[in-house]
């Protein structure tokens, strides 16, 4: 079933919506959660929680793309779950590696800012990138994919992916500073 049909099931309050959504997107969502959590059972629970949350939010929300919509939910849930784990701050997994990489973009101190404004600034910055650089950046820092997997999927060498990410991180820092964020 396509995304439009699945969303229609949500709107009709048909519980098949969850089954169809899991069938269509469950694998990608579980992979995303697994890259963050490093534990398949936790990842599966995150997917289930995410689908349940989607059930509670559609309607009134009407996602433009169900896959991306569910990914945002599951990604957030997985990160929350990871943070809840004690002594996991610098554990394994692509999430933690991503944190380390992005540390060059920020100072690491508690500063006041508006989360929505930060999202908007990051979105603006990503829109200014080439489609290729944006694709690589999102695959790494939204989907938490490994560099080698990104390289394989995009037809690049790993070193190219790394250098693209490095440039993008540097550019992001400059953009956020220009936008007045206290890094």
């Amino acid at each position: 079933m396509d995304n439009e049909g699945i969303v229609s099931l949500f709107f009709a309050r048909d519980e098949n919506a969850i089954r169809e959504a899991r069938q269509a997107h469950g694998r990608a969502l579980a992979a995303l959660a697994l890259r963050i959590l490093g534990d398949s059972r936790d990842a599966e629970e995150c997917v289930s929680d995410g689908l349940f949350r989607a059930w509670n939010t559609i309607p009134p929300q009407q996602p433009r793309d169900l896959g991306a919509f569910l990914a945002k939910i599951v990604r957030g849930l997985a990160i929350d779950r990871l943070r809840a784990r004690e002594a996991q701050k610098r554990g394994a997994g692509e999430y933690c590696l991503s944190l380390e990489e992005l540390s060059e973009c920020v100072g690491g101190t508690d500063t006041a800012f508006e989360q929505g404004a930060l999202t908007e600034a990051i979105g603006d910055y990503l829109r200014s990138l080439s489609p290729q650089a944006r694709w690589i950046f999102l695959r790494r820092y939204f989907w938490f994919e490994r560099v080698e997997d990104i390289a394989r999927a995009g037809g690049f060498t790993q070193s190219k992916v790394k250098s693209t990410l490095s440039r993008a991180r540097k550019g992001l820092r400059e953009h956020l500073e220009k936008e007045g964020f206290d890094l």
Binding site: P63, R64, D65, G67, A68, F69, A71, K72, R75, G76, I79, R83, Y95, S98, L99, E100, L102, S103, C105, V106, G107, G108, T109, D110, T111, F113, Q115, G116, L118, T119, I122, G123, L126, R127, P131, R134, W135, L138, R139, Y141, F142, W143, L172, L176, F181, D182, L183
Partner: peptide, 21 residues
Amino acid sequence: MKTENILDAMGALEESMLMES
């Protein structure tokens, strides 16, 4: 700002942008 803030903010990006990736 902390690195977690960046990743959190990315979690709220527009779906149209995420669809590309």
